[in-house]
Design a protein around this nucleic acid. Structure first.
Lengths: 224, 224, 224, 224
DNA sequence: TATGAATGAGCCTTCATTCAT
DNA sequence: GATGAATGAAGGCTCATTCAT
């Protein structure tokens, strides 16, 4: 479980993005900035161009369309986010690990994804904003999350339920419960109040605690 | 606690919205539709006008600006959402209620807000989308949520902590943990997959369960 | 046969074009000018706008597309050109008239169309230029010429052949032979050298002479 | 008269075009294709480049300008078309030939030009389309047709009139009458309906017949 | 009050042309 | 000589906003 980094390169070798020319990189960087700042629809290619120190035409030489540019930005982010889940490891670990270590397992996973988002906070914003309006992004989301990640989650949850380790809610509900606090944290941490003096380690611990206890079978404080 | 409805009218008498002419209502309704469908920036006043069966000029007679129209839509929604929290009752109840009834209390609150959102799902979408880009909306949000609702929450949490009923996380963290699963549910329920055959009652119960256990002091499934 | 003018209004009452607002007329007039001068593809809507003393946006309020503007110009011209042929009169006259008056008949027809083109010379240019590249125009041409005019011609030719008045070439060939010198004259007269001191009456007489003799059965200069 | 082929090489030795590099040939070929398909103004150098399997820059190495490319295409075609008329032979033949062979003479000439156009149909289209808009092409046309061909025609016509073989129309009118049916045929044959099952020999015969009779002094079928 | 024609700034995109490699 | 990335001017079109009626 310590080697997430390795997995990152399993499916999509890092060389993939290295093909970018300097101009392309400037464009992508500028586009991420502007899209995140103003939203896709309110961003103008001319502003992106000038922030990228590039002629406007240059953008369209590399990305046929403004939307193509958006996709070129969002797709790798989604795939990148999903990479760790592709590993067979993920489910196996849940299966192998003793109950009292589950919390550590979850934390490792979250921590890793947290770091990924930390490096790409503006992209998180762009995805959350634009997913709602572009079917191309929805498709990509479908492909990555619903077809790849969710099944893994379901498998893991299945094991946990069998072990009697967790409450017996429907799978989609449980997945939602796992993800909501995480997303809630990420959004607060990086989008709403990135300038607060965060103690990330502590917040993550508490979030994991919250999720684990929330899904626990016992009745929490109101015993019984 | 059964009389939330009354509170709704406490601060903002219902007469307020009655000043709307029929044309205005058509415009607002159409605008909500279009904004939710395409996002504010990608919506055109001409489409709103034609959906409202109104001349384009008419929109600008009532709302000086496209953005004014957005605000006219979002502001009442935010205020409406916050209304129940204005009641002194809210904190008092938390203080009075016996620990084993806390879950019911939370559920009543959530249920009520759930119904409110249910009637205004497109507005939820608009708020979540546009909050990020319009300082006028952020101000309004600040005013309503941070200045009104959050302090109430903090007070309630203070009581709970005193009672030893909940874990001792920082207040903002706890508020986030309470709200994340709720928002997660609302977004899934109304925006992502509104067409699934939802059992709202059950989902709400489970969400409350999740939150309460998540915040409980006990160690959840990994007992001890 | 003297009342072609009346026929002009038979099918398409003149009121039809009267719906045009002043701005629309300015736009159409300017567009005809510019299209004829530079060709459709090399004309810019901004130049049309400024020649029409109208904002560029105004063009697009009336004609959704640059191409729509082209069609709005060409369609009425084609229909207008075809109008006389719609009359039942046309074929009947050919049938009734004695052989020695055929030349007069043809001349009346040509003269009339000549006047029509004279009023719309730039439009003739536009049609001849753009017909080759726009399927919408081809369709319109098909509809008007091939479906309406050509059949009338064929009928007339059928009568003439029966009378033994003309040579027995295939119908399409004969139609081409009738039209080529006419078009050749129109193009030379209005497009290639409009500034020459033309004696239109004489040219028309000679063109008719040429066509009639060209189609005659006799062997012309060689022999009798 | 059988040796038109020889004339072809009289003024412009065939070697002239042999200087073309393979790339240049590909470019010219592609340009002819694209120009004919879409018209000069709507053709993009990038499409020409890709059809020619050549980098876009390569076009501009050989032809400084898009328009230069057009001229490089059109000029040789015009000159090529005019070549036979340069021969002194042309007028002499008209002078020498007995009246009853005039038709054959004309047919030989037409047939020969017909074959030339047949090999270069797209070029005919390009010339007819672009002549109207490019003064460089008009100049070239002037140079070739008005200064070279027309005088030859006038001379020939002068002879014919002297012989009393033809009607006494003004020279320009007669030239127009000779050329209109020919151009009408070429345009129909190669541009409008190239896919019809043409009997070229017959059409040419009939066209010649039509011209000769059209210009004959007699009154054709309607004797007198 | 309501209308809708008119505006013109600004947007995305295309394209001929240049130039460093 | 050949390439193709880069340019930036110009084009068609959209849209929020104004205003005379």
């Amino acid at each position: 479980m310590k080697e997430f980094e390795e997995m990152l390169h399993t499916l999509h070798p890092p060389s993939e993005e290295k093909k970018l020319t300097p101009k392309q990189e400037q464009i992508l960087k500028a586009a991420v900035e502007v899209f995140a700042e103003k939203g896709y629809a309110s961003s103008s290619t001319s502003e992106i161009a000038s922030r990228a120190n590039v002629a406007e035409g240059t953008i369209f030489r590399h990305y046929k369309t403004k939307k193509d540019l958006l996709i070129a930005i969002v797709k790798p982010f989604m795939r990148g986010f999903a990479v760790p889940f592709f590993a067979a490891r993920f489910v196996q670990d849940v299966f192998d690990v003793p109950p009292e270590k589950l919390e550590d397992l979850l934390k490792t996973l979250i921590k890793n994804r947290f770091e990924f988002v930390k490096e790409n906070a503006p992209l998180l914003k762009i995805v959350l904003q634009e997913l709602a309006f572009h079917s191309e992004l929805k498709d990509q989301f479908q492909e990555v999350f619903i077809q790849e990640i969710f099944p893994k989650f379901e498998e893991a949850i299945y094991h946990l339920k069998e072990k009697g380790a967790v409450v017996d809610f429907p799978n989609p509900t449980m997945i939602r419960m796992i993800m909501s606090p995480i997303i809630g944290f990420l959004v607060t941490r990086f989008l709403i109040a990135p300038d607060l003096p965060w103690d990330d380690e502590k917040e993550l611990d508490q979030t994991v605690h919250f999720i684990m206890h929330g899904l626990s079978k016992g009745t929490g404080s109101s015993s019984d």
